[in-house]
Amino acid sequence: MKWFLGHLGQVGSLMVNHAVLAVAPLVIGLLLAVPLGWLAQRYRWLRTPLIAGTGLLYTIPSLALFILMPLVLGTGILDPVNVVVALTVYTVALLVRTVADGLASVPQEVLQAATAMGIGNVRRFWSVELPLAVPVIAAGLRVAAVSNVSIVSVAALLGIPQLGSLFTDGFARAFLDPIVVGIIACIVLALVLDLAIIAISRAVTPWRRTQVPA
């Protein structure tokens, strides 16, 4: 506790770095997963290869992905972009399935009603399917957000500053305080992101608030 109070600034700035490294892949990953998930849902034959293929990416250990990124991207060894791209890979791996499931959860009658109202396919996707899939997508996004926060910390083994730096620093000096503070800060950050996603998901689905009490 005393250590924490003495290092507020440091912990704060590491936390900001951590948040950026965890959130950027989330946003990019979502943007990539929506079209991929749509493809998987729209064309049945694409579903298995897309979902199994992206799911496979999940089994690559993060440390390896971080370190091999420079070879693939031609970036520098210490470039945080490596971390962002690696986490984007994981985020996509997780979200493609969720987006497909989310789109599949939209009742067929609703889609037919929309078509009957003369809404074109493109507009129907943006104004009917995607909004109705938000709750399911948000659930997947929450999982991705929370796991991203945990994975970012591994990048400390490569010297990219974020909350994981507290782990390596503490460990090198056999000093528990920074490690514990880092763990708690990670949990807090994950919680904040989780709440933010819930809030955003509620905000963009106003009809659910009146429909579903609780």
Partner: peptide, 19 residues
Amino acid sequence: VNGMRSVPTLGLLFAAVLV
């Protein structure tokens, strides 16, 4: 389940080894 998922494994491992 949600809480555990947010605990960073690397930090927990280091703490566990030290303790």
